[in-house]
């Protein structure tokens, strides 16, 4: 085995750092070009609707099903713990706050990265490897505008909507378990929830979180597809990268956002 010297390791570290900064720069230029530049081919609304369908509507099933189950589990666990303190009625408050502030945006973003994000990366990567992007360029259509921009916007729009739907379905699932199954009094379940949930601080902050997550996840997914090596191996690597980077980014950002929104400073 060849031994690498310390200097060599430092060099590799430096190179990794330079690569990371270069990628960040490229992805920023990519984003700006796609979002603001001169609009070109096709009816933008038509393109957007098509992407909203494949990014948003197609993710609806997994979001709704996961939402119901997570709400039900939260309700069940919360009830068990809260009943030790004799305050079972607070289960509504607990389920609602957990979903609105944290689980709604975060779990939706993770599912979104797995379902829609990986699909976006694979689709764009495939277009690149089959030279469809190049041929668009040669036809005189900017692929950033025609392919990338509608997908970015579809992601930005879909994610907050999906997160809100997730929360509602989850709360509904939680209510079902608490009221119909565990026998919490319906009136106090909802009253407790309404007293403790503030529209501005809980609902809107959750929506803001999901907007940020949607932005980051879609950006990562689309860029990875556009930047991937145009081979089948490169596409599969890029797809994995999308899910890993997007998940890590969501969890990291969630901490920062939570500290900013709900932390006392």
């Amino acid at each position: 085995m060849r031994r690498t010297s310390t200097l060599e390791r430092i060099r590799l570290l430096g190179r990794a750092g330079i690569d990371a900064v270069a990628t960040l720069g490229r992805s920023t230029v990519f984003l700006l070009h796609a979002l603001f530049g001169r609009s070109s081919a096709g009816n933008p609304l038509q393109l957007l609707i098509k992407q909203l369908y494949s990014v948003g509507v197609m993710s609806l099933a997994i979001i709704v099903v996961s939402g119901i189950f997570i709400g039900m589990v939260l309700s069940l666990q919360g009830f068990n713990i809260l009943s030790d303190y004799g305050s079972e009625q607070a289960v509504g408050q607990m389920v609602a706050l957990t979903l609105l502030r944290e689980l709604g945006p975060v779990v939706t973003a993770l599912l979104f990265a797995g379902r829609a994000g990986s699909a976006l990366t694979a689709e764009i990567g495939n277009m690149k490897s089959t030279e469809q992007l190049s041929s668009l360029e040669m036809i005189g259509v900017d692929p950033l505008k025609y392919i990338v921009a509608p997908r970015l916007w579809a992601g930005f729009i879909s994610m907050p909507l999906l997160a809100v739907i997730f929360s509602v379905v989850g709360i509904w699932g939680g209510a079902m378990v608490a009221i119909d199954w565990l026998g919490v009094y319906e009136g106090s379940f909802w009253a407790n929830m309404q007293n403790s949930v503030s529209f501005r601080e809980d609902v809107l902050n959750g929506v803001i979180k999901s907007i940020v997550f949607g932005f980051v996840v879609t950006w990562i997914a689309v860029f990875q597809g556009y930047d991937c090596e145009p081979t089948s191996e490169g596409i599969s690597r890029a797809t994995t990268k999308t899910v890993v980077y997007a998940s890590l980014a969501v969890l990291g950002l969630d901490f920062i956002l939570t500290a900013l929104m709900f932390g006392d400073f």
Binding site: G37, R38, S40, T130, E131, Q132, S134, S135, E137, M138, I139, G140, V141, D142
Partner: peptide, 23 residues
């Protein structure tokens, strides 16, 4: 510039190796 290039390319056609049809 980028936009002038896109105009320029209207005068060119390319037949790619794989055909590169929009699937």
């Amino acid at each position: 510039s980028r936009s002038e290039l896109f105009d320029m390319r209207k005068q060119m056609g390319v037949l790619f190796q794989s055909g590169a049809l929009f699937t």
